[in-house]
């Protein structure tokens, strides 16, 4: 039985996983029982300190367990904001001393991949695309807990591209989820925005798309701009979503081809995007391989994924001790043909 704690960026979260089933999953900002003392939930860092105890207590009580049931405490060690990570890490270490249970450091991005295992059993080896507001990475996972990076964004994350381009179109930031909804009734062939393929390798770049949308908008005569954008909003959302998802799918397909894997995992907040899901289903269908996407609840930042990853690490005996340190950034091993 693993208690998971997450505090790497905006969300304070805790969850309990028993190796077969998720027993609880609490995200402070979404939980009515946790009292912020009238403070509007803020971005990140020290705000975690005010709610972490209540969040963990809620997760334990939702799961109906006490400290005796817990075998280890898994906590996000990075990457993220140092101040935010330290709150979770120090809290976990304190519990570890008090409860006499080992602590396990978990990489936040790796954990996004393992969120898939809450409801499914993807066949290893697989290729995983992690796409969110802050991350866009492509991994080869030959065996549990081995993550080889195949590509990543060189500028904006895919989720950030949705959020910011939507803002350029006049939507509220973050615009990703709204763009997805509007795109559903738009014409994706309305305008052919560039697909930045970066021919060499599997890296991504989305900032060029952002500026090309900007130029597109600037080219509309100012007096017609608002009316034009309003009239064609759905078509533009669809065309832009198509440009982003085409690149993601193209690289994902290339990664599958290079590795020969039989399953694909798509994780992170953007995996909820319906156009991405549809194209991924089509692509994996054509290749005759399986596709796994975690339930949307486990795609945004949460502690269930930390608990599950902690469970995998405990199974391999990968425990940490009180020397565990947070890190702001992480370099994954590169995928090499030798492995």
């Amino acid at each position: 039985m693993i208690l998971g704690i997450e505090s790497s960026c905006d969300e304070t979260a805790a969850a309990v996983y028993d190796g077969a089933q998720l027993l609880s999953n609490v995200v402070a900002s979404q939980n009515d029982h946790i009292d912020y003392g009238g403070i509007v939930p803020e971005l990140a860092s020290r705000a975690h300190e005010r709610v972490i105890w209540d969040t963990v207590a809620q997760a334990m009580s939702d799961a109906g367990v006490t400290r005796e049931h817990i075998d280890a405490i898994a906590v996000t060690e990075g990457p993220g904001l140092m101040g935010s990570l330290l709150v979770g890490l120090c809290f976990a270490k304190g519990l570890s001393v008090q409860w006499q249970k080992p602590v396990i450091g978990v990489n936040h991005i790796d954990a996004h991949i393992y969120a898939t295992f809450i409801d499914e059993k993807p066949e290893l080896p697989f290729v995983s695309l992690v796409v969110s507001g802050g991350h866009t990475q492509l991994f080869h996972v030959p065996r549990p807990l081995r993550h080889e990076i195949m590509g990543q964004t060189r500028d904006d994350a895919a989720g950030e591209a949705f959020d910011k381009i939507g803002k350029l179109l006049g939507l509220d930031y973050p615009a990703g989820p709204v763009m997805d909804r509007l795109a559903a009734s738009g014409d994706a062939s309305f305008y052919d925005f560039p697909r930045a393929m970066l021919r060499k390798g599997l890296d991504f770049s989305f900032s060029g798309l952002k500026t090309s949308v900007l130029y597109y908008i600037q080219d509309i005569p100012e007096e017609q701009r608002d009316d034009y954008l309003k009239k064609h909003l759905n078509d533009l959302c669809a065309s832009i979503s198509a440009a982003i998802t085409d690149v993601l799918i193209h690289k994902l397909r290339q990664a599958v081809r290079e590795t020969g894997v039989k399953s694909v995992v798509i994780a992170g907040g953007v995996s909820a995007n319906s156009m991405l899901r549809e194209k991924a289903r089509k692509m994996t269908g054509q290749l005759g391989i399986s596709l796994h996407i975690p339930h949307p609840e486990y795609c945004t930042d949460n502690a269930a994924m930390i608990a599950v990853t902690g469970w995998f690490k405990a199974r391999e005996g990968q425990y940490d001790d009180l020397r565990l340190k947070p890190y702001a950034r992480h370099q994954w091993d590169k995928k090499s043909s030798a492995v």
Partner: peptide
Amino acid sequence: QSPTFSLVHE
């Protein structure tokens, strides 16, 4: 990379 979401990159 853009730190818009992460707030800080080191």
